[in-house]
Amino acid sequence: MKRRRSGADTAFKSMTLIFASSAVVLSLIYFFELYYGSTLTLKSGISFVTGSTWDPNNQVFGVLPMLYGSLVTSAIALIIGVPISLGVAIFLSEISPQVLRSPISFVVEMLAAVPSVIYGLWGLFVLAPILRTNVYPILESRLGFLPIFQGTIYGVSVLTAGIVLAIMIIPMVASISRDALLAVPDSQREAAYALGATRSEVIRMSVLSYARSGVFASIFLGFGRAFGETMAVTMLIGNTPLISASLLSPGYSLAALVASEFTEATTQVYISALIEAGLVLLVVSFIANVVARLLIRRLIRSREAASYL
């Protein structure tokens, strides 16, 4: 009787252990499968990411334009999205009256739940036309001396994709930053107030500084999300494998490449190239997420340490 019972204990623990190990196994399988799936093109080495010609018919696979598109759209998303996210986070943690916090957080969470294909659809039919007729012409006439605001206006473009990505990363960046700001002890705020700081000075010298690793973590997570975001970008970037100086021109991204060409890839080597594009996505987003999680972990540790002081 006793033995059977302890057997049940062992069996239960083993079962949960096996399921928990899925995280380890999955991590390995991701790299292993994508690595072996792209054997045919991996052997051409670094030219895959440095080559700027994508010509599947002639079996020339260079994803530099897509890598460039992924990086530029992510950068636009961060440049526009991070300040807005921080504004929202600061409002929620430092400025908002108590009664407004919960409803506003609710709205921000709803924004996070909207599926990306819906952002794509809305971007394509609602935002892109507005940008094309009302915003981009103004950008071009006022700032057209800059190479990034020149050329033909299509509506779908690197900038359009970046703007929608910005909207998409705001809820996540805002929500994690807000948590980091709320974790700042009041004693830190008091220290600044007692020195004669105004509220905005308290936020800058004390709150943001104390919470900076959490804020950086949210930015890394936002980057990871933007870099790997597929549907909205596929629908808005124009899917053209070119590197152009102008943000108003169509471009391409790694994720959009994988999503839009897999169904038409017929040759083994073409498929291999697309899987390798997936591998690049995997490596970059894995690193961004590891960095973000390490930052968050450090934040939690320091918070625990602070609470024992």
Binding site: A23, G228, G278, S285, V290
Partner: peptide, 10 residues
Amino acid sequence: DVLAGIPSIV
């Protein structure tokens, strides 16, 4: 946590 951040396309 890291896996949750892997792009879904991957």
